[in-house]
């Protein structure tokens, strides 16, 4: 790891004052230390926000769910109110990585993770995403079994955040604070796809800090679920994951949000799958039809065609789980 200056901040203002000259913000530090150990980022200064108390804490009330960005994944997974009313979020946080990582990793850090792509994560490979000169996306011509199967023309990375999937499905909002003031960004606008920018992965600007994540109160009749599938049943990066939020009236689906995690370079909603379910009775047939619609426009690479099948399984089973018609899948990553 490169040498760096370390500043432990106690307040947001103090942190904002330190975020200059190439400094990187550190919360749980899991993804950051990973990147630093591999020499992918070499910040001269770390701004430690881990001890800023105003960024901690979870409040669930009549106006919705307020999550301090320093809430750990363990805290989110264990929160009774989140388990009950924001089930998919508790599931996603509770199935990310390992128990030890969940005890350390924060919500803000989870949604700010850098992409998964072994070419991006290796200092041996040059690519435009790392400000490199090479025009090639090595994943297009190389090993790509874990890469994106949709929107992958420019760059085939995937975003690994589990929590971003239900947050997007629940219309969450992210509060960003800088010296200029605060602004709120919808989760649907938070990630920047590679065709818009290869460098900016999110709308977070230099000097901005995530100071809150807000999830609105679910409509009456809302049920949600999240499941992820990987090579192992214990901890693993997802190969396919689905977040489903349904507004139900008995078995009748009034509204549906279906979000896919590692299908594309950013978490994406499948409006095609949502359209199949909206206004219909949820059963095995409609769940299968939604899964199939979600993968209609998939453009798998040479080695990841299996992910289109795996995503259909993930969507089908998670729709039925959300609708209360299926038990949690024991073959999903627990």
């Amino acid at each position: 790891m490169n040498k760096f200056v370390f500043v432990d901040c106690k307040t947001v203002d103090e942190a904002l004052g330190q975020m200059s000259d190439g400094a990187i913000v550190k919360a749980g530090g899991i993804d950051l230390l990973d990147l630093m150990k591999d020499g992918i980022v070499t910040p001269p200064k770390l701004v430690n926000i881990r001890n800023i108390s105003s960024l901690q804490g979870i409040t669930a009330g009549k106006d919705g769910l307020h999550l301090g960005p320093l809430s750990t994944l363990s805290e989110i997974a264990a929160h009774p109110e989140i388990q009950k009313n924001y089930t998919a979020l508790a599931n996603a946080a509770g199935h990310a990585a390992t128990p030890q990582v969940r005890n350390m990793a924060t919500l803000g850090g989870n949604i700010m993770q850098r992409p998964r792509c072994w070419y991006f994560r290796s200092s041996e490979f040059d690519c435009k995403k790392k400000n490199g000169a090479s025009d090639d996306c090595h994943a297009h011509t190389g090993e790509n079994q874990y890469h994106a199967i949709m929107n992958n023309e420019t760059c085939a990375m995937v975003h690994p955040s589990s929590t971003a999937v239900p947050l997007l499905a629940m219309n969450a909002q992210v509060e960003l604070t800088s010296k200029r003031g605060k602004r709120t960004v919808a989760m649907s606008e938070f990630y920047v796809p590679p065709e818009k920018s290869l460098i900016n992965e999110t709308v977070v600007q230099p000097g901005e800090l995530i100071t809150g994540v807000f999830v609105p109160v679910p409509e009456p009749g809302t049920r949600s679920a999240y499941q992820k599938y990987g090579e192992k049943e214990s901890f693993d990066w997802p190969l396919a994951d689905a977040g489903v939020v349904l507004v139900m009236d008995g078995t009748h689906c009034r509204k549906a949000w279906i979000v896919l995690g590692v299908a594309a370079p950013t978490p994406i909603r499948s409006t095609a799958a949502e359209a199949v379910l909206t206004g219909k009775t949820i059963d095995e047939a409609t769940a299968r039809a939604a899964a199939s619609a979600a993968m209609k426009d998939a453009t798998p690479l040479s080695q990841n065609g299996f992910k289109t099948q795996l995503f259909q399984t993930a969507i089908y089973r998670t729709v039925l789980l959300a609708a209360g018609q299926m038990q949690p899948d024991p073959s999903a990553i627990g």
């Binding site: 530090g29 899991i30 990973d34 150990k37 030890q100 005890n103």
Partner: peptide
């Protein structure tokens, strides 16, 4: 592994299991 993937370095920080390899000592 030194990357938080194997948990061999598990210690407790304030009684909670955590990864010593992904924790800065100064933190």
């Amino acid at each position: 592994c030194d990357r938080g993937s194997c948990s061999a370095c598990t210690v407790w920080i304030d009684k909670t299991p955590a990864l010593a390899c992904m924790t800065l000592a100064i933190d």
